[in-house]
């Protein structure tokens, strides 16, 4: 120890070697470690059902539990369902759920903005490879000038370990 105290360089070299070894040990662990990235999959799409335009438009909302509400001059005609998703990841990890908005279109150049509301903003993952489910609601804003048609679109769901 006395020699070490007067010769710090071998010790420093040992630290860097250890750190390097850490990287070597750590790298292959990423591939097989259950602590790898979580995954999210869609089990059921969000369906706002059918709505009839009227007046100056309004908003249609499907809650994460599937309840439907319309405002303004819109008439909700039903047929809605909340979306369903599942996260798979390492047990006991806390994940945050982030959802992007979407522009739905009818394939003819007409667009409709949608924002989404997950049932959970964060979630503690259960053990094993169990799918951790959550649901997704959303809100559409329709102007009175919107054109009739079938609209659809995609959005991103990001899950991240906290």
């Amino acid at each position: 120890m006395r020699n070490l105290a007067h010769s710090p360089f071998p010790v420093r070299r040992g630290v860097w070697l250890t750190a390097f070894a850490c990287l070597l040990w750590g790298a292959p662990a990423l591939a097989s470690n259950p602590h790898g990235a979580p995954s999210v999959e869609m089990l059921r799409e969000i369906d706002f059902g059918t709505l009839a335009l009227g007046g100056n438009g309004g908003q249609i909302t499907v809650s994460p539990n599937g309840a439907l509400s319309c405002s303004g001059g819109l008439q909700c005609l039903g047929g809605q369902s909340a979306g369903a998703f599942a996260i798979t990841g390492a047990k006991d990890e806390i994940v945050s759920i982030i959802v992007s908005p979407a522009m739905l279109d009818d394939g003819k150049g007409h667009r409709l903005r949608a924002v989404f509301t997950p049932s959970d903003r964060t979630m503690v993952l259960r053990p094993g490879n169990a799918k951790n489910p959550f649901t997704m609601g959303g809100t559409l804003t329709a102007s009175g000038a919107l054109v009739e048609g079938s609209y659809s679109g995609t959005f991103d769901v990001i899950v991240e370990y906290q």
Binding site: A37, S152, V159, Y161
Partner: peptide, 18 residues
């Protein structure tokens, strides 16, 4: 470390004229 993954969702609606 913190890892993230992205997936896609889809949404649809049928709009009828007044």
């Amino acid at each position: 470390p913190a890892y993230a993954a992205a997936g896609n969702g889809t949404a649809s609606v049928k709009i009828l004229r007044a």
